[in-house]
């Protein structure tokens, strides 16, 4: 008895490992949405989700970090309960927090390209503190204005109110 293997197109070793890491990191960002700590300032609790996006950029690099965040959004759109509060579905991606969500892949890619100094992967431990801090400031700059603009465009309130709400 023989198995037909002529049509099987194997995935390369590096791509298989990177795919596994990107998928697991996407699931981790989703799992971080459930870990909430009470926030004394705002009614919305602090979750580790945005930290997960930063770590995706730092640990996986710009390409696979961005891919992990893209997978996270797609899995959530298709029904994995990975968005804030265990929600899911395409509706969340046009909902009130959509600005944050759409900016995640860009933020991870931007952070990754600063930390690794380009598209190829380097050891993140070799990056200096200033570079890491700069990358994360860039991440904040990508994520929060995106949400402010989204609130202004989507919910239809004036931009200054939106920026105040995003704070």
């Amino acid at each position: 008895m023989s198995a037909e293997t002529g049509d099987v197109e194997l995935v390369g070793d590096a791509a298989a490992s990177n795919l596994a890491r990107a998928a697991l990191f996407a699931a981790l960002i989703g799992a971080f949405a459930y870990v909430s700590f009470p926030n004394p300032v705002s009614p919305a609790p602090v979750t580790l989700q945005v930290l997960g996006v930063f770590l995706a950029g730092i640990l996986l690099g710009p390409v696979w970090g961005g891919a992990a965040c893209g997978l996270y959004l797609l899995a959530g759109a298709l029904g994995a309960p990975v968005f804030a509060g265990g929600s899911a579905g395409l509706g969340v991606l046009v909902g009130p927090t959509a600005g944050y969500l759409w900016s995640y892949p860009f933020a991870a890619a931007a952070i990754g390209s600063v930390v690794h100094g380009g598209v190829s992967l380097t050891d993140p431990k070799a990056a200096g503190l200033a570079r890491l801090v700069g990358a994360m400031v860039l991440g904040v700059v990508v994520i929060y204005p995106a949400e402010a603009l989204k609130i202004a465009a989507g919910v239809g309130i004036v931009r200054s109110d939106a920026i105040a709400a995003a704070r």
């Binding site: 795919l19 989703g30 797609l74 899995a75 298709l78």
Partner: peptide, 8 residues
């Protein structure tokens, strides 16, 4: 995307 979503 298909494999990644299934793994998530």
């Amino acid at each position: 995307l298909g494999v990644g979503v299934a793994l998530v």
